[in-house]
C-alpha cells in the first residue's frame, strides 16, 4: 500500500522565497496570488502527488512554515 502525504504551508508564515517550489521533485508547489499578513504571496500545495520526501521542509528557512503530514487511513 502506497503511503500518502500532504504538505501544509502556513499562509501567514511563508515569505515566498521560492526555495520549496524549486526543490520539490514532483513540482506540486506554487506561489499563490493572495498576499499574506506580511505581504508575501505565500506558497501552497497546488497539486496532489506529495511523496513525503521533506525537501520543502528542509529548504524552508522558516521553522514552522512547512509541515509535511503522512495521511494514515482510518
Amino acid at each position: 500500500m502506497d503511503k500518502k502525504f500532504r504538505v501544509h504551508i502556513e499562509f501567514d508564515q511563508c515569505k515566498a522565497c521560492g526555495r520549496c517550489i524549486i526543490a520539490c521533485p514532483r513540482k506540486i508547489l506554487a506561489l499563490g496570488k493572495k498576499l499574506n499578513r506580511q505581504s508575501y504571496p505565500a506558497a501552497y500545495q497546488a497539486k496532489d502527488g506529495c511523496i513525503g520526501c521533506g525537501a520543502c521542509f528542509y529548504q524552508c528557512p522558516e521553522p514552522g512554515a512547512v509541515t509535511v503530514y503522512e495521511i494514515v487511513e482510518a
Partner: peptide, 28 residues
C-alpha cells in the same frame, strides 16, 4: 482520516518568537 506529522517544527524552537510585539510572532 488521520494525519501524522512527518516533518514539522522542532520542539527546540520556542512556540512563539517574542522578539518584538505585534501580530507576527511565528516568523524569524
Amino acid at each position: 482520516m488521520k494525519e501524522m506529522v512527518k516533518f514539522g517544527k522542532s520542539p527546540v524552537f520556542f512556540d512563539k518568537f517574542t522578539r518584538r510585539p505585534g501580530p507576527i510572532q511565528d516568523n524569524m
